[in-house]
């Protein structure tokens, strides 16, 4: 709300990829937020015009080009994509303020309809092959590399009953796979450089890049 207060005309942009799938920033949520913002502004005694548009993907410049004919008519843009989308729009339209409408939290999987859990932190050095397909980086609160801490009780993390201990899960899984020897192997200290430790990351596929 604070972001958009000074403006009379804004463009609310959704994204038909990941945020649609997790019901956060697709056409439907765009509509709901537009209505909600409109009402909130009306209620405060002001008026606002909110235009809605949903792009196929906000993180690809070609799709973002679609906004060109709309952009001049508005004073600011609000993006319902993940941080990538927000930044891509901001990059493309340098003279328009762009605001995020979502807090991008994590990369996760859906446990069931409407329930998502964090599964990956993009550390750049995957060790799922060693840990029975369960990631101790994303799923252990302490990101321990060699077994659980003392707070693990009854398969739960000391954070709370709702959080499974990643290492307990790894142990069960390895047992089931008949690979308990993996558990005993000592994993050396993790190299965090590929995980962002040496600044913003970039991938260049020589064969695709032009």
């Amino acid at each position: 709300m604070e972001y958009i207060k000074p403006f009379k005309r804004i463009l609310l942009v959704g994204c038909n990829e990941c945020v649609t799938v997790c019901a956060a920033g697709g056409r439907k949520e765009v509509g709901l937020l537009a209505s909600g913002l409109h009402m909130a502004v009306l209620k405060s005694g002001a008026t606002i015009e909110i235009r809605e548009h949903t792009l196929e993907r906000q993180c690809d410049p070609e799709y973002v080009e679609e906004l060109v004919p709309m952009i001049d008519g508005v004073e600011a843009v609000m993006s319902m994509a993940c941080g990538c989308g927000v930044q891509e729009i901001a990059r493309r339209f340098k003279n328009k303020p762009v605001f995020p409408a979502l807090n991008t939290k994590f990369m996760g999987a859906s446990e069931r309809q409407g329930v998502w859990s964090e599964r990956c932190q993009g550390c750049g050095d995957c060790l799922l092959g060693m840990t029975g397909g369960i990631c101790p980086i994303a799923r252990c609160a302490k990101q321990l590399m060699n077994g659980p801490c003392g707070g693990s009780t009854g398969g739960h993390c000391e954070i709370g009953e709702d959080t499974d201990c990643a290492w307990a899960l790894i142990w069960e899984r390895l047992k089931a796979l008949g690979q308990i020897e993996r558990y005993v192997e000592i994993t050396p200290a993790k190299d965090w450089r590929p995980g962002g430790g040496s600044g913003p990351r970039k991938i260049i596929r020589e064969d695709l890049a032009e």
Partner: peptide
């Protein structure tokens, strides 16, 4: 053209 294959309809 719009469907994101999110499975929500399949599940609901």
């Amino acid at each position: 053209n719009i469907c994101a294959a999110c499975l929500i309809c399949v599940r609901s």
